[in-house]
Amino acid sequence: MRRPSSFLLAGRRYSPAASLLLAAPFLLLIVVVFLLPLATLLHESLFLPSPGLQHYERALAEPVYLRVMLRTLRIAAQVTALALVLAWPLAWVMSRSKGLGLALLAAAVLLPLWTSVLVRTYAWMVLLQRNGVVNQWLQKLGLTDEPLKLLYTEPAVVLAMAHVLLPFMVLPIYSALKGIPEDYTRAAQMLGASAWASFREVIWPLALPGVTSGCLMVFLLALGFFVTPALIGGPQQMMIATLVSQQVREMLDWSFAGALVGILLAFVLLLTVIFRRAVRLDRFVGQG
C-alpha cells in the first residue's frame, strides 16, 4: 500500500492542462454567474441610451447619490473598526486555547457562517425593535422610562453588520496569532519589555498581515452589503447596494445602476491594489 506522502507527490504531477480542466467547472460558473452579468451591466452604463459617461457624471454630481456613497464608506469603516475591536480578544484567546476550549470557540465563530444572513438579521430585529428584548431589559433595570428607538438607526446597522461579518475578521487574525511562538513574548519580557511594549513591538507587527487581511475583507464585504442594511436601517441609512436594487427594481434604470456598480467596482479595485502594495512594502521593510 502506498504511503500518504506518495499520494501527495502524485498530486503535484498534474500538468497545467489537467489543472485547468479540473478548474473549468468553477471558472465557467464564475464567468456565467458573475463576470458576464457584470460586463453587461457596465456596457449598458457606458453605451445606453447613448455612448458616454453621463450616468457616471450624474452619480458623482447629484448630492443625494454622493451622500449615499459617502454613507456607505462611513458605515463600512465603522463596521470594520467594530469588528476589529470585537475580533482581536476572541482571536487572541483562540490562539492560546487548546483541546475542547478551542473547539468550542471555533464552533462559536464558524456556526454563524452556516446560518442564513437573513435569519441573523431578523434576530437583530427581534432584539432591537420597540418592544424587543433590549428595550424590555432597559425598562426592567430602570435605565429608561419608555422604549428607545434602536431599530432603523445607523448604530443598529453597524452593530448588526459587524456581527454578521465578525468571522471574516476573527479567522485571519487567529491564523496570524497562531503562527507567533509564545517564546517571542517571553523573550521580550526577559529583556525588560513591559506587556504593552512586547505587544507593540512583537505581537502587533507579526499579526499585522492577518489584521490587514481581515480589515480588507470586512470592509469590502460591508461596501456591498444588502440584506442587513435594507432590513435594519431606514431611508436615512440607505447604502449603495440598496440604491442599486432600487434603481433596478423600482426605477428600471439599468444604465444608472450599472454606473453605480462601476464606481463601486473601481473603488474596490483601487483599494485592493493599495492593500497589495502595502503588504509588499511591509515585507520589504521587514526584510530590511
Rank of each mutant, 00 (worst) to 15 (best):
S5K: 15
S6H: 15
S15L: 10
A18I: 11
L27H: 08
L28D: 07
V31I: 14
V31R: 10
V32W: 07
L35I: 02
P37T: 06
A39K: 13
L42R: 06
S45Q: 03
L48I: 15
P51I: 07
Y56G: 01
A61C: 13
V64T: 08
Y65Q: 09
R67H: 12
L70T: 12
R74G: 11
A76R: 01
Q78G: 09
L82M: 07
L86Q: 03
A87N: 06
W92L: 11
V93T: 10
S95L: 07
R96K: 15
R96W: 03
R96E: 05
K98M: 14
K98H: 15
L100I: 15
L105F: 02
A106W: 06
V109E: 10
L113A: 10
L113F: 12
W114T: 01
S116K: 09
V117S: 05
V119F: 03
T121H: 06
M125A: 07
L128F: 04
R130G: 07
V133Q: 04
V133E: 09
K140I: 15
K140M: 13
T144M: 11
D145H: 12
P147T: 01
L148F: 09
Y152G: 02
E154Q: 12
P155S: 06
A160E: 00
A160F: 04
A160T: 06
H163D: 13
V164E: 01
L165P: 00
S175K: 08
K178S: 13
G179P: 04
Y184M: 11
T185S: 15
G192W: 02
A197I: 15
F199G: 03
E201Q: 14
L208S: 08
G210V: 00
T212M: 15
S213E: 09
L216K: 02
A222P: 02
G224P: 03
F226V: 11
V227L: 06
G233Q: 02
G233A: 07
P235E: 12
M238I: 14
M238T: 14
A241N: 05
S245C: 14
Q246L: 15
R249V: 15
M251N: 14
G258E: 05
A259K: 01
F267A: 11
V279N: 03
R280F: 12
L281E: 15
G286T: 15
Q287A: 14
G288L: 15
